[in-house]
Amino acid sequence: MSHRRPTVKGDLSFSNPAVRAWLFQILAVAVVLAIVAYLIHNTVTNLNNRGITSGFAFLDRGAGFGIVQHLIDYQEGDTYGRVFLVGLLNTLLVSALCIVFASVLGFFLGLARLSENWLLRKLSTIYIETFRNIPPLLQIFFWYFAVLRNLPGPRQAVNAFDLMFLSNRGLYLPAPMMGEGLMAFFVALVVAVVVTVGLYRFNSKHQIKTGQLRRTWPVALGLIIGLPIAAHLAFGPALHWDVPELRGFNFRGGLALIPELAALTLALSVYTSAFIAEIIRAGIQSVPHGQHEAARSLGLPNPVTLRQVIIPQALRVIIPPLTSQYLNIVKNSSLAAAIGYPDMVSLFAGTVLNQTGQAIETIAITMSVYLIISLTISLLMNIYNRRIALIER
């Protein structure tokens, strides 16, 4: 029989497991810090030997190149810092569009996989098994080169009521411009929403006390429509529209959605929706069948059962893998560089890096941006996941 010496409180010898654990942790941290210090010293030495100045002062220099799509004002003489903002907003735009479209499409595809309709079930299965097994880059090339680039030119563009035009140069839409009555319209809308919420709560308390049901939606509809119209008549229009017009070889004015944005949005939405559909299907099937039978025994119709009983329970299974798909969308948006969409990677880690030679700074900024976006999405999804989690009492 082996005899282990008991640990004495205050024993700082190496035989104390707690002391050994602390020593090993301190040693591991020291090794990591030494490696990081060596890499930094080596990098600084190589930069000095090549005469490359490090730092972020280059962000204040003029860029000198144009960007085909920018959500904020941008001119060729603007700084590299402005280029960073343009690339960041373009990345956020395509990521947000893909998250919305992929979620909606994936939800309905997931429901279709469980449908009792044989044709609908098989078509959704074919869709899912096809698009989730084709690399996203190939799907981007398909939508861009095989579909959008083969649309007619601006002079033969598809015309919708002389307001919207679709050509191989992109989709041109009327652009909203601020009018003199915008503030009044916004205030009227806020007042209508606040009054509607207060009225809904008052009617709910009245129903609990008396059992009498008072409908809120007729008054709410009148407020939300009537007050903004009254503000429009009293203070003028909140918006006016800049309609695109064909001038020369292309359209001028309006809001232009370039083909690169459309191809990237279509490809990533279709690709990711196939994975989301399987997540939705798995989440719904994870709910015990007894929940369906209990809802049926209460006489609840199928849409109400799905909306009020099944989906709330399935969300607890759906949210964690759904978060991973949202993160994949953000990371896959970097494939935009393959077709020239001006996102963070294409602009900052591409054009700006080549012009300035600040490889470490530009790559570090780009990596940090993707890290912050991903951590923000994870944080928001985890907060929502905790709110819907089952609490054991």
Results as ranks from 00 to 15, higher is better:
residue 216 T to Y: 14
residue 124 S to F: 14
residue 128 I to G: 02
residue 127 Y to D: 02
residue 29 V to E: 06
residue 302 N to V: 09
residue 298 L to E: 05
residue 203 N to H: 10
residue 126 I to V: 15
residue 282 A to C: 09
residue 103 S to F: 05
residue 339 I to W: 04
residue 9 K to F: 14
residue 368 S to W: 06
residue 241 W to T: 01
residue 100 V to Y: 10
residue 343 D to N: 13
residue 62 G to I: 02
residue 307 R to V: 05
residue 324 S to I: 11
residue 348 F to K: 09
residue 203 N to S: 05
residue 12 L to M: 10
residue 175 A to N: 06
residue 77 G to E: 14
residue 317 V to T: 15
residue 358 Q to A: 15
residue 273 S to I: 02
residue 112 A to H: 00
residue 330 V to D: 03
residue 236 G to I: 01
residue 33 L to D: 04
residue 20 R to P: 09
residue 83 V to M: 04
residue 63 A to N: 09
residue 169 R to W: 12
residue 226 G to D: 04
residue 263 A to G: 13
residue 215 R to S: 15
residue 95 S to N: 03
residue 87 G to P: 02
residue 64 G to C: 10
residue 110 G to A: 08
residue 327 L to M: 10
residue 167 S to N: 10
residue 229 I to F: 13
residue 48 N to A: 12
residue 192 A to T: 00
residue 245 E to M: 14
residue 57 A to L: 08
residue 85 L to T: 11
residue 166 L to V: 13
residue 140 I to L: 09
residue 30 A to Q: 07
residue 349 A to H: 01
residue 387 R to F: 15
residue 225 I to K: 04
residue 320 P to W: 02
residue 222 G to W: 07
residue 263 A to Q: 05
residue 139 Q to R: 03
residue 272 T to F: 05
residue 51 G to V: 02
residue 292 H to V: 06
residue 346 S to T: 12
residue 162 D to W: 07
residue 356 T to M: 12
residue 213 L to E: 09
residue 284 I to Q: 00
residue 62 G to W: 00
residue 104 V to S: 07
residue 11 D to I: 04
residue 93 L to W: 02
residue 312 P to A: 10
residue 327 L to D: 00
residue 301 P to T: 11
residue 167 S to F: 08
residue 354 N to M: 15
residue 280 I to K: 01
residue 1 M to Y: 01
residue 37 A to P: 00
residue 214 R to H: 15
residue 77 G to C: 02
residue 75 Q to T: 13
residue 132 R to A: 06
residue 33 L to S: 13
residue 261 L to Y: 07
residue 287 V to A: 14
residue 127 Y to F: 11
residue 58 F to W: 14
residue 109 L to Y: 12
residue 204 S to D: 13
residue 157 A to N: 01
residue 33 L to P: 02
residue 94 V to H: 03
residue 237 P to E: 11
residue 158 V to H: 09
residue 42 N to K: 12
residue 14 F to N: 08
residue 104 V to Y: 04
residue 22 W to D: 10
residue 350 G to F: 09
residue 188 A to L: 03
residue 280 I to Y: 13
residue 91 T to Q: 01
residue 129 E to L: 08
residue 300 L to A: 07
residue 162 D to M: 03
residue 205 K to W: 15
residue 116 E to T: 08
residue 310 I to K: 06
residue 193 V to M: 05
residue 292 H to I: 06
residue 73 D to A: 13
residue 105 L to M: 09
residue 57 A to G: 13
residue 233 L to G: 08
residue 53 T to Q: 15
residue 47 L to C: 10
residue 194 V to L: 09
residue 314 A to F: 00
residue 133 N to W: 15
residue 119 L to G: 02
residue 329 I to E: 03
residue 309 V to G: 03
residue 286 S to R: 04
residue 210 T to L: 09
residue 30 A to I: 10
residue 387 R to Q: 13
residue 103 S to V: 08
residue 213 L to Q: 12
residue 233 L to T: 13
residue 153 G to M: 06
residue 385 N to T: 10
residue 140 I to P: 04
residue 64 G to H: 05
residue 181 G to F: 07
residue 241 W to R: 05
residue 23 L to M: 08
residue 59 L to K: 08
residue 32 V to C: 14
residue 172 Y to E: 02
residue 61 R to D: 13
residue 239 L to C: 00
residue 24 F to V: 14
residue 339 I to A: 00
